[in-house]
């Protein structure tokens, strides 16, 4: 199956929060007024609508093509699946929260109130996608602002909308190339930075930043061991030679 994606078009969103409701139902989370009014991702909701005047955006895991969370997790609790979703295995997680630090979109949330906490984040309804179903949020969306489908087709669709109605959008397809591309694509009437999204993200994936350094590890070990062993040999050999010479000198003197 080809890679899947979610396309969110902010110009079609009416801020009804049906996506939040559907998402909470899927995860078995209670959804009420208090949860609805907090426009931050948390252990209580894994997606949220962000309001700015008349405009709306959505926060949810972007399911990066080369995700920072997958690369930083010391126990491999995150996996980028072939279908697109980045999924989390709570059975491996030891709770170091490096994924939360590393995520460029500040997505993973933690169960701070629990004695045995887990990381919580959108999994793009990986099971539903595998069964050929749309994600819960796109199914619940009454206006078609959120849709799911093949990534390539959704990119085409996004391009078509930008071309047909250029004045309605800020002209960008978010997720096309940020941090190397993501499986969540977004269209917006105004820059997402206005909604509090990071504006300074590189267009290249983040994992190579640490990967390059880690690739030096075998060299450091190999070269370092030889170097230190060599220094040890030289510094101690010098001593042995000096001792031997002293001994030889003393013997010679005794002879004479």
């Amino acid at each position: 199956m080809s890679s899947k994606a979610i396309l969110f078009d902010g110009t079609q969103c009416i801020g009804c929060r049906s996506c939040e409701d559907a998402c909470c139902k899927k995860w078995g989370l209670e959804y009420d007024e208090a949860v609805a009014s907090d426009e931050r991702l948390s252990e209580r909701k894994l997606t949220t609508v962000v309001t700015r005047g008349e405009h709306y955006a959505r926060r949810l895991c972007r399911h990066c093509a080369d995700p920072a969370c997958v690369s930083v997790c010391p126990v491999g609790a995150f996996t980028k699946t072939d279908l697109g979703p980045v999924v989390y295995d709570e059975g491996r997680c030891m709770g170091c929260r490096y994924c939360m630090l590393a995520c460029p979109f500040q997505v993973p949330a933690y169960e701070w109130s629990k004695a045995l906490p887990r990381v919580r984040k959108c999994d793009m309804c990986a099971e539903r996608l595998r069964a050929g179903l749309p994600t819960a949020c796109s199914e619940a969306c009454p206006t078609g602002a959120t849709v799911s489908g093949d990534r390539e087709k959704l990119i085409e669709e996004a391009r078509r909308r930008l071309a047909e109605n250029p004045k309605a959008y800020d002209g960008r397809i978010y997720g096309l190339s940020e941090v190397g591309g993501t499986s969540v694509l977004m269209l917006s009437a105004e820059p997402l930075a206005h909604f509090g999204f990071p504006a300074n993200l590189p267009q290249e994936p983040l994992p190579p930043l640490t990967g390059r350094v880690l690739s030096f590890v075998p060299d450091v070990v190999g070269v370092g061991a030889v170097l230190l062993g060599g220094i040890y040999w030289i510094t101690h050999r010098r001593e042995e030679v000096a001792a031997a010479e002293r001994g030889a000198g003393a013997r010679r003197e005794n002879h004479e």
């Binding site: 997958v70 690369s71 930083v72 997790c73 010391p74 126990v75 491999g76 609790a77 491996r92 997680c93 030891m94 709770g95 170091c96 929260r97 490096y98 933690y110 169960e111 045995l116 906490p117 887990r118 994992p207 640490t210 990967g211 350094v213 880690l214 590890v217």
Partner: peptide, 23 residues
Amino acid sequence: DLGRPYRIWHPLVMWNPHSVMFE
């Protein structure tokens, strides 16, 4: 600090060599 400290040994058996934290 770890959310689940009793799993502190996990990196020793569940490897992710791409992770600085693992190293």
